[in-house]
Design a protein around this nucleic acid. Structure first.
Lengths: 89, 89
DNA sequence: CACGCTTATCGTTAATTTACGATCATACTG
DNA sequence: CAGTATGATCGTAAATTAACGATAAGCGTG
C-alpha cells in the first residue's frame, strides 16, 4: 500500500551483494535453478536458503517444487515494479 | 567496482522507509532542506541525522553548509546510476 | 521400506541496524 | 562575549541480520 514502504521492502531485499548475485543469476539463466546457486556463491547451503527466502518474501523470485528439487525463477513483474518505483521517485 | 556490491550499497541505503521518504522529499523540494525533515518524519533529530548520513555515504544525497544550517539535496546522477543498474539486471 | 538427494528450518553466535537522549561543535544574533 | 539555533556525534539498549552447522522434511530410486 504505502509506496515508501513497498520500495523499501524491495530495496532491502537487494541490499546484500549475495542477493543481487542470486537475482542476476536467475535472470541470466532464465530457467530456474536450485542448488546451483550454492555452488556459485561462497556461502553455506543454509545461508543461501535464507537469502532465497528473503528474495521470495519480497516477491522478487518464486520457487516451484519440481520433483526432488525446487526450481527458482525471477519474477520479472515485480522487478519491473521496482524499476518503476525508482523511476517515479 | 563490483556491480553487485555497488547495487547492494545503493539498495541498502533505500532499504528503510524513512530513507525513501527523505530522498523523495528532497527530490520534490529540489532545493535542499535541513531540520524540515525532522518535522516531517516521526523520528528524533539524531535518528534523522543518522539516516541522512547513510544516504550521504551511499552517494544518494549531498549536504552543503549554508550558514547555520546544512542544506541537503539529492544527487540525481547517483539516482540515475541506481536506475541503470536495476535496468541492466 | 530404506537410502540418498535436495532444500527448508532450527538453534546459536557475532555483527549490524535502529532508535533515543545527551552532549558537542559551529555559526549567527543581540 | 553570552545566548540560541542547527545539526553531528556519542553512548546505549533493543531488535534485526548474517552466517554456520545440525537436523528435519519431501521426493525418487533401488
Amino acid at each position: 500500500m504505502n509506496k515508501d514502504h513497498n520500495l523499501a521492502v524491495l530495496c532491502k531485499a537487494l541490499g546484500h551483494p549475495a542477493r543481487v548475485a542470486i537475482l542476476r543469476h536467475l535472470l541470466q539463466v532464465d530457467r530456474c535453478i536450485c542448488g546451483d546457486i550454492v555452488n556459485i556463491l561462497p556461502l553455506a547451503q543454509s545461508t543461501v536458503s535464507q537469502h532465497l527466502k528473503q528474495l521470495k518474501e519480497a516477491g522478487l523470485i518464486r520457487g516451484e517444487i519440481e520433483g526432488p528439487c525446487i526450481c527458482y525463477c525471477a519474477d520479472k513483474n515485480r522487478l519491473a515494479e521496482l524499476k518503476n518505483l525508482i523511476t517515479a521517485l
